[in-house]
């Protein structure tokens, strides 16, 4: 596809991209630390991925291949719109295959296919501050980060166990990055948390409304918080994916009729499709 006329490459002007890259460099240098940046007005509403889009615009080049997912799917409105946005403003190649992509912008999921060195995963973050619901004052949360004063986060987990008998937080599960900074991994299911640990790809997080960028560099230690007697666990399903039969991927529950019928399918559409293709090839 040819790029749209009248726009700079990847929509943002070069000075803005430079500013965002500086913030990204700082974020990579201090894993998990939230770097403030001058977030721009983007041609889509806050909450639809303005942070992720700006980060992607700053790191993408003409030779890159872009994949965009929303809840694991390549074909949802948000994913389709953002993919087309970059296809038009930057003229880059797009793909739905995880292995072929060099830049992957994501909302709510990490792809099931393991990422490789050289790939960049860009997360869209609604609220970057992990301590926000515990401490409403920004000055105080910054101080808590500066002093690594993270006891309050465990109060929340304690409260979960006291009420539900287990840690009931299932998404946006707080992690400690590189043994230092507490970080919100954006609303990915805790199923995906272990994938962040020692991941060979570069992980960038952009929060447009809150004007923060943070990062997890390749091969960085990422630990999910827990208690010694209530260790961190991920979700499990009794069913396999109804389409591809996968037993080890994150499953969505889909209601199929009004008589209680439901099916479980992979949330990662690329994973599901490639498994089907492989199965058909084997038959």
């Amino acid at each position: 596809m040819t790029s749209a006329q009248g726009y700079n490459f990847a929509y943002l002007d070069e000075q803005t991209k430079r500013m965002i890259r500086r913030a990204i460099l700082k974020a990579v240098a201090i894993p998990g630390y939230q770097v403030p940046f001058g977030s721009r007005e983007m041609p889509l509403p806050y909450g639809w991925g303005t942070g992720g889009i700006q980060v992607t615009a700053a790191v993408i080049g003409p030779a890159d291949t872009l994949k965009v997912i929303d809840q694991g799917a390549d074909d949802t409105t948000n994913a389709v719109s953002i993919r087309r946005f970059f296809a038009r403003t930057a003229g880059v190649a797009t793909t739905e295959r995880t292995a072929d992509a060099t830049v992957i912008q994501t909302r709510h999921r990490i792809p099931e296919t393991p990422l490789a060195e050289g790939q960049i995963l860009v997360y869209q973050v609604p609220i970057p501050e992990p301590l926000r619901w515990l401490e409403p004052r920004e000055t105080e949360t910054r101080k808590m980060h500066a002093l690594a004063d993270y006891g309050a986060m465990h109060v929340k987990l304690y409260e979960d166990i006291a009420r539900f008998g287990r840690i009931a937080t299932t998404y946006d599960y707080p992690v400690l990055v590189n043994g230092r900074y507490l970080m919100r991994p954006s609303p990915i299911p805790k199923f995906d948390n272990p994938k962040m640990h020692m991941n060979p790809a570069l992980q960038l997080f952009g929060a447009g409304r809150e004007k923060r960028i943070y990062a997890v560099p390749p091969y960085t230690d990422v630990k999910s918080l827990d208690f010694e007697d209530h260790p961190f666990e991920v979700q499990k399903w009794d069913e396999a994916c109804a389409i591809c039969g996968s037993t080890d991927s994150f499953l969505d529950e889909v209601v199929t009729d009004d008589k209680g019928g439901r099916m479980y399918v992979c949330s990662d559409t690329d994973h599901c499709t490639s498994r089907q293709i492989r199965r058909e090839a084997a038959e």
Partner: peptide, 18 residues
């Protein structure tokens, strides 16, 4: 909860056993 209120200080100084 009351229990979390009392336990907060313990967690702040590093207690990690529920």
């Amino acid at each position: 909860s009351a229990g979390a209120n009392v336990g907060e200080r313990l967690m702040a100084v590093g207690a990690r056993h529920y």
